[in-house]
């Protein structure tokens, strides 16, 4: 950063013989230097993962290229699934659809279940965080229920809803809600007494206290819960869809397995991973935008 500045300085010192020194406007590095710096920084981040991925693909290729290997090498995966990759939007009716449709069906279920879990989870977490009575009553139940694996809820919800779609949404909901409840409750319980005093002196009513003090103060905790929640939702959807069938990435994988299309499974796994990563980044991004400045005092 300082390099071009330092070079520029001696040049301006020479006219000091005229006995008048003019203040220099801070000089920015030349465009070419800046571009090079930015590119350098990008390269620092991009090069290592690219190298690691290339090496991993190479090892995989070498291991699976031999005759009789049970899994296809990456080159086979690419040629086998090329059609699916280049045309994710085809729709030949029934379950024979492009990956886009499967993924969007899964994402819709996650969106419904997760958003529901957000609202109910924050509400219940607030209740548990605010009221000692509610905490004593509800906390033991939460602690037991949250250890139940997501898929164990599926038969029960199928029995209750008698339909795959709401059952899958329920499984997402019940998976995502626990970390949201627990983190919200911790956040609410950790609101500093100072802020409560301010609210009392100002005589904020319950609604004002909720929006102006509680939510912003607990926001970092709430978002931690929301982030864990979205990760768990995406983990659960694939398993749930394998069992309920219909359009969805989970069923796509199960279907590919039944038809021995191993390459398609691998492609689907890549998509599942990438989307899970993107979902996590989205929630993390919202979190930084919303909680800007709340953490520090």
């Amino acid at each position: 950063m300082n390099m071009p500045l330092m070079k520029a300085e001696p040049a301006t010192v020479t006219p000091a013989t005229t006995a008048k020194v003019l203040p220099l406007p801070p000089k920015r590095p030349a465009l070419a230097t800046r571009t090079r710096m930015v590119l350098g920084k990008v390269a620092e981040r991009i090069v290592p993962p690219v190298v690691v991925i290339a090496v991993a693909l190479l090892i995989w290729e070498l291991l699976c290229r031999r005759a009789g290997s049970t899994l296809p090498p990456p080159s086979r995966v690419l040629t086998d699934t090329w059609e699916l990759i280049v045309d994710p939007f085809f729709d030949r009716g029934g379950l024979d659809k492009g990956l886009f449709w499967h993924l969007s069906a899964s994402l819709q279920r996650v969106a419904f279940g997760y958003l529901l879990a957000c609202f109910v989870g924050v509400a219940l977490g607030t209740l548990v965080g605010q009221s000692t009575w509610a905490m004593r009553g509800l906390d033991p139940i939460f602690q037991v229920l949250r250890t139940v694996p997501p898929l164990a809820w599926l038969p029960l919800s199928l029995a209750a809803f008698r339909n795959g779609q709401p059952s899958a949404i329920f499984v997402i909901f019940i998976t995502a809600i626990w970390p949201i409840i627990i983190n919200t409750a911790v956040g609410i319980r950790n609101i500093p007494q100072d802020y409560r005093n301010v609210a009392q002196v100002l005589r904020l009513n319950h609604l004002e206290f909720f929006w102006k003090i509680m939510v912003p103060s607990a926001a970092p905790y709430i978002f931690t819960g929301l982030r864990i929640g979205i990760g768990l939702s995406w983990l659960a959807i694939v398993a749930a869809e394998m069992l309920i069938g219909g359009v969805g990435i989970g069923f796509f994988i199960w279907d590919a397995w039944n038809s021995s299309h191993i390459s398609e499974i691998i492609l689907a796994l890549v998509y599942v991973g990438v989307i899970g990563f993107v979902l996590d980044r989205i929630v993390a991004g919202i979190s930084t935008a919303v909680t800007h400045g709340t953490a520090a005092n």
Binding site: D194, Y195, N197, V198, Q200, V201, L202, R203, K212, I213, P216, S217, A219, T291, H292, G293, T294, A295, A296, N297
Partner: peptide, 29 residues
């Protein structure tokens, strides 16, 4: 016997709400 703005407190540790700007902290009151 209850808090109220007729007895405003300046707290030892300032107790400003960190998510609000200086203006908004005063404006809230």
């Amino acid at each position: 016997n209850e808090p109220g703005p007729d007895r405003a407190v300046v707290f030892q540790n300032h107790s400003l709400l960190p998510w609000l700007t200086v203006y908004d902290n005063v404006r809230l009151a």
